[in-house]
């Protein structure tokens, strides 16, 4: 469970994340929408303890945001940059991060093999990351986030660079993780008909919509444009 109270962050550029108040239950699947620069990535970075809030606080499973190590054990984050050492192989990268998460050698080996198979990257185990396509790197980023089996996944633009089949496969996989809280930030309108997940829309650093959207005869894109005014 994530509880966020009056969370804010100011930047020298003048942009600020404005007093976010949210409660996210365990197992919820949330999509965060918003235009570029709306504050989605900043929000995820604060939740992942990569950026300190200027004001307010949050707790994750009861741990306050100052308990960085306890929070990080429970979070997996993917970022568009990928976070990989390009000159190391896929296995070397995952092995390094696994060790940083304190996984034992045997546990790590089994977990890496299993996840590589799950994401169709088994053949690339000994390939250097700089030889992977963007879509493969994207899948590898998801594997890295899942390596320590965290209960919370923070996914920043997870479908960018993926072809339709890979994106659908990833969506199906993420939907199968029923016990995990998944917060996905995107600026694509990848809304599926009949989807009943909670959505949060950011605009200019503030939450402008938080709830479950129902179609009501309008497309999600039209609804989104109405909310953000663009």
């Amino acid at each position: 469970m994530i509880v966020i109270n009056n969370l804010g962050k100011d930047f020298d550029t003048g942009f600020s994340l404005k007093d976010i108040n949210l409660v996210i239950e365990t197992g919820e699947k949330i999509k965060i929408f918003g235009p570029n620069g709306a504050g989605k990535t900043t929000f995820l970075r604060i939740l992942a303890c990569l950026s300190k809030p200027s004001r307010g606080s949050f707790t994750i499973f009861g741990y306050p945001h100052t308990e960085r190590i306890e929070i990080l054990k429970r979070i997996g984050l993917t970022a568009p940059s990928g976070h990989f050492y390009e000159l190391l192989t896929v296995y070397q990268n995952l092995e390094f991060y696994g060790k940083m998460y304190g996984l034992s050698r045997q546990e790590l080996g089994e977990r890496i093999k299993g996840l590589l198979k799950q994401f169709n990257l088994s053949e690339k185990e000994n390939t250097k990351v700089n030889q992977l396509s963007k879509g493969m790197k994207q899948r590898l980023a998801i594997i890295k986030a899942l390596l320590h089996d965290p209960p919370i996944l923070l996914l920043d633009e997870p479908f960018s660079g993926l072809d339709l089949d890979s994106a659908n496969s990833l969506k199906n996989y993420l939907n199968s993780l029923t016990d995990k809280t998944i917060i996905t930030a995107t600026h694509d309108f990848d809304w599926e008909e009949g989807e009943k997940n909670r959505i949060i829309i950011f605009d200019n650093g503030a939450v402008v919509f938080d709830g479950v959207w129902s179609e009501g005869g309008h497309s999600f894109k039209a609804f989104y444009k109405k909310v953000v005014g663009k």
Binding site: A48, C49, L50, I69, L77, H83, Y97, M100, Y101
Partner: peptide, 8 residues
């Protein structure tokens, strides 16, 4: 960032 994301 990835290094800072590790619980270390």
């Amino acid at each position: 960032d990835a290094l800072c994301l590790c619980p270390i």
